[in-house]
Simulated scan of single mutants.
Amino acid sequence: MEQIQHPSTLLQPAWVDTIRKYAPEAEQSGKLHPAQLQLVYDQQWFNLLSPRQYGGLETPLPQLIKTEEALAWADGSLGWVVTLCCGAGWFGGFIAPGVAPKIYADEEACLAGSGAPTGTATITGDGYIINGSWKYASGVHHATYITVNCQIMDGQNPVLDTDGSPLILPFVLNRQDVQLISGWKYIGMVATGSDAYAVKNLHVNSNRCFKIDPAAAVIDSALYSYPFMQLAEATLAANLSGMAVHFLDLCKPALEFKATNIRRVNAANVLVMDEALQSATALLNQVRATFFEAVEASWQDPLNEKLLGAVSAASRMLAKISRECVDELFPFCGLLAASPDTEINRVWRDLHTASQHSLLTFLD
């Protein structure tokens, strides 16, 4: 098993300082702070998965998940926005070559979107008419383009896929053609700006439609041959891991404060808290290592269904252990952890909100 590293080893201290300095203001405004956003642009984090031929970094998945874990360790909301938006940037491997270069020509290009199939795309002579509304698009306030999943319609009749189910396909739309709707009112991930959006009677050319399938990739690269499901599971799980490591880091001073300032906490209590922190840290690192190894193995052999299944299992287990380690330690951290004005509470809220993602809920 590989020697596990702390996420901080992947980020320059100045980057972490900027991200964390402005995290409270970002939470107040409900989106990333301009200083945080400038750092994202400078380091091309929105382009981590974008095609190299369009100026992207085309980052291999094993390297990507460690970078995303590190960013989520620095701040949950920033890590999540980068993960979801660079994940949408991955679609560049499937978007028509006549459209994609225009999308990525902008140095501040950012794609955001929702996977929910809550729109319709009605076939016209030269394209589609799109209608619908979508929820929870993280980073949508920073987006230059927005993706939507639509049920394909031929007049009033749904078009069927090869298996007889309704045909669902994604589209990429200009940000100015989309109406944003305030809708993110949850306890955590507040700075992700994960608001809703809607489109009404929008005509788009047929080349705005694409298909997420290795066989439909328009760029010959290992990255766009890797299955989307495992890519999504792994990148989301890495975020929960990063937040959990951040929480455990903050536990140490919280436990020290409790040990020295609460008279009812005796030496035996201190030992219990210290052992709980050591045990949680060891367990989380063990599961992180298993997760990283599973992703690496699948990256080397992405057609191996057994290895892909191991990625799915390791991702869900990492999400589960991240939650459980944090919840075991939370009661030891005192009211400091319960105050919404503290960093440790923000991390707790972010992790428990992000962990509600449906891809990470069940172990099988």
Rank of each mutant, 00 (worst) to 15 (best):
T147W: 02
V172P: 01
I19H: 01
F291P: 04
E293M: 05
D154N: 13
S133G: 08
G79V: 08
G125Q: 15
L64V: 02
L32C: 10
P117Q: 10
P302W: 06
M189I: 08
S322Y: 05
T290M: 07
D106V: 12
C150E: 06
K31C: 13
Q356M: 12
A112Q: 07
H246I: 03
I152W: 04
W90F: 15
Q179P: 00
D350M: 05
T290H: 13
H33V: 11
K102V: 09
M229P: 05
Q179S: 11
S298R: 01
G89W: 01
A234W: 02
R346M: 11
T83P: 00
Q28G: 05
V311W: 02
P302R: 03
E25T: 12
L61I: 14
L303W: 03
S194G: 15
C150G: 04
D126N: 14
G125F: 06
D154F: 02
K21I: 02
A70R: 08
D163G: 04
G139W: 00
M229Q: 08
L61R: 09
D341L: 13
G115W: 13
C325A: 15
D177G: 07
L10S: 12
D154H: 13
E293C: 11
W348T: 04
A35F: 09
V245C: 05
I187P: 12
H6T: 03
M153G: 07
E305V: 12
C85K: 03
A112R: 06
V16M: 11
R20T: 14
L169S: 10
A191Y: 05
F292E: 15
S221Q: 06
A35P: 00
E256G: 01
E27I: 02
S315Y: 07
K66I: 03
A116E: 14
C86Q: 14
A88T: 06
